[in-house]
Design a protein around this nucleic acid. Structure first.
Lengths: 150, 150
DNA sequence: TTAAGACCTCAAGTATTGTTGAGGTCAAGG
DNA sequence: CCTTGACCTCAACAATACTTGAGGTCTTAA
């Protein structure tokens, strides 16, 4: 078993500890590290050691993923956190403000979509000319002939 | 060029026509067909021919995708449409009512997430014990030792 | 001394959602 | 006749987000 160090105030976490506390698999932690989302250093046995704030980073990653944000984007956002010092509440707040905007945008889009859905797909206009749901991807077509009649 | 048939009321569409009218690539149409999302028959030249309502199917697929619904789920929903006859407005309406519920659920989840984001990640509780954002994935841990103090 | 447990690396596999390319068919027009 | 354009099949590749497995290391406890 890995060294537990002193029992009271342990600031370093092993990969197994991070995994069980964050709820993500060890392989996922390796993966996130390879992708630059989290960082670690090694002890004498070449085992990963994590700063406690990795737990919050992972929490943030999961929240962002729940919102549908791809890892690459999450990585970029996390890159804004300070490199050397432990992020402050303010640092996290800036980040969460960004997620909030992202989320707001997504919510708005989905809401629009939902509202159009009832008035549009249901009504049958979707196969006709001026459907707001269809138009974004049907700029072309309907040239001269009379297919809109069926 | 493929036979255009009569000009006025053409009920069959070639894959190229469906592609340009729906805005999806031909390869995507092949893909959707392989996945059971759309159907076609063949003419004498072994070319695909589509019913006009494939355009609406595709529109529905794209709407559902914009809402983040995976193709497998979309396929299942579309499977509820009548097999032999052309779907009526009512058929589409039932479908869109389902999408609407899906969308409502997603919007609700994202909204909760957004509202928690401000009050939670920002405040710093995320690394502590009772964070509503963290708890879903951190059922274990914090056993006996004192790491929550840092 | 040895076995267990936690960890390591690196390659390959999985699922989703498509795109790209090679090689071939078919019908019409010059 | 022969080229062109639209279409065909099938296999491979791509990006995202991980998981699985083989084979090896290190430390501790019996």
């Amino acid at each position: 078993m890995a060294s537990q160090g002193k029992r009271r105030i342990r600031r370093e976490l092993s990969v197994g500890e991070v995994a069980s506390r964050s709820g993500v698999a060890i392989s996922t932690l390796h993966f996130y590290e390879a992708k630059g989302l989290i960082r670690s250093w090694r002890n004498q046995a070449n085992h990963r050691r994590y700063c406690r704030d990795v737990l919050r980073r992972i929490a943030v990653i999961k929240v962002a993923q729940r919102a549908g944000i791809p890892l690459g984007t999450i990585r970029e956002a996390l890159a804004q956190l300070p490199d050397q010092r432990t992020p402050t509440a303010e640092d996290w707040q800036r980040l969460s403000a960004q997620w909030k905007e992202e989320l707001d945008a997504r919510i708005t889009k989905l809401t629009e979509l939902r509202d159009q859905l009832g008035g549009c797909i249901g009504c049958g206009c979707l196969s006709m000319e001026d459907c707001p749901l269809r138009n974004p991807w049907d700029e072309l077509s309907e040239r001269g002939s009379g297919p809109q009649l069926l």
